[in-house]
Nucleic acid binder design. Sequence first.
DNA 1: TATAATAATTTTGAAATCGAGATAATTTTA
DNA 2: TAAAATTATCTCGATTTCAAAATTATTATA
Lengths: 146, 146
Amino acid sequence: MENDSVTKSLKLFIVLSRAYKAINEHVNKVIQANGLNPTEFAVLELLYHKGDQPMQQIGGKILLASGSITYVVDKLEQKGMLQRLACPKDRRVTYAQITDEGKRFIQDIFPEHAKLIDTLMSSLTDQEKTEAINLLKKLGLPAGRF
Amino acid sequence: MENDSVTKSLKLFIVLSRAYKAINEHVNKVIQANGLNPTEFAVLELLYHKGDQPMQQIGGKILLASGSITYVVDKLEQKGMLQRLACPKDRRVTYAQITDEGKRFIQDIFPEHAKLIDTLMSSLTDQEKTEAINLLKKLGLPAGRF
DNA sequence: TATAATAATTTTGAAATCGAGATAATTTTA
DNA sequence: TAAAATTATCTCGATTTCAAAATTATTATA
C-alpha cells in the first residue's frame, strides 16, 4: 500500500511519545521529590557537566524561551544552586555558574537518577539499547534541523 | 566496564528526549498555527479516533491532571469542538463528545499533520522505522507499568 | 437505612512557560 | 564616526498546568 510509509511514521510517533512520557514521568517524580522541577534540574545538570554557560546557550540546549531562562535561573539563584557572572568581554552576556552547593546537590542526586533510568531501560538488552541509540540519533538529528 | 549498561541507558535517555522534542516542536507549531494548543489537539484527536470518553479517562490517556481536563474541555467546548454529555447511569460522570465541527476540524488537519510527521521521520527507511517501533514498544510498555 | 468510604468533576491559587516588547551593549554599514 | 541592525537579557501579561480542597454522587458497611 502506498501510504504504508505514513502509517508507519504515525505509529512510530505514537510509540516514541509513549516511551518518552512513560520514562519521563518517573524521572520527573524523583527530581521533584528532591525539591527541583525538571527544568531546573536540566539547567543545573548542564552547568555541572558542561561548565559555565551564557544564558543564551542554556535556552538553546534545554529548548526554553528567553523569558523562561531568566525565570529558572532566578529560581536556582534563590536556592543557592548557581550564581550569575558578568562576561568581561561582552557586557550583554551573563554566565550562569553552578555553586559548590549546586555541585553537591547534583553529586548527591545523580547516582540515584542514573540508576532509575537504567532500571526503566532494563527491558532492553545492551545490544538493543545500542540499536535504539543509533536509530534515534538518525531520527532526531535531521528533525532538529528542519 | 561494569557501568557500561548505566552509561548506555543514560545515552539512550538523551537521544530519546532529543528525538521526541525535535519532532514535537515541529508538530506543535503546525497545531498551534491551526488555532489549538497541543493538549486541545490531543483531546480532540482522542475523541475523534476513540469515540466519546468520560473526562476521567481523558486524563489517563493524555497524562493530564483532573483540574487541567476541566480547563481544556471548557476551552474546546467554547470553541464548539466538543460538547459535554451527562452519563445517565452515573450522575458523577460527564462524557466529552466531539461535535460535527470538531470532526471537520480533525478531518481538515489530519492529512497535513500525518504528512508532516512522515517528513520528519524520512531519515529512516521503512525497515528502520519497524525496528524503532519494536524497540520503543519494548522500552515504553514496561516503563509505563513501573 | 444511616454512616462512611470511594469516586468524578470542578474550583482555586500558585507555579511554569511563552511571546512580544523593552533595555542595553555590540557590530555592521554607510 | 554616526546610524542602523543585531544580539543578550529582562520585564510583563496571558496561557497552561498542577495540586489540594470543595462539591456532588455512588457504593460499601455497620
